[in-house]
Amino acid sequence: MVYVAMVTGFILILMGLYGALTNSNILRMIVAFSVANTGVNIVLVAVGYIDGRTAPILDAAVPVAEAAVRIIDPVPQALVLTAIVIGLGVTTLMLAYAYKLYEIKGTLDIAQFSELKW
């Protein structure tokens, strides 16, 4: 279970990166990065998972006293939330940039934006 999730996550990362580094269209790159980010998030969550346990919320199903043996690791869950939000922020920013770049040159081909070099 954990391994499946993790392998999936890694494959998503690699796929995403492949897409981001081979597609020359900026929007496609952004999408590809989103894919990769998703992969990262899956990996994050997968790491904290413990077989046969439940979510780290103390309610009727998980009494406080038994929490330590009943719940999965809450930390990755907390981290993934932050990671998602940050990923979202960066993606938004990239989109805004993409818009602006298009406005400047009328193209979304990343190779066209290479006046700065050497």
């Binding site: 954990v2 391994y3 993790m6 790491v47 904290g48 998972y49 413990i50 077989d51 330590a68 043996v69 719940i71 690791d73 809450p74 930390v75």
Partner: peptide, 11 residues
């Protein structure tokens, strides 16, 4: 990677 069977210190 070896999946944990129980919570680590922090958890």
């Amino acid at each position: 990677y070896s999946a944990d069977n129980e919570l680590n210190l922090t958890g």
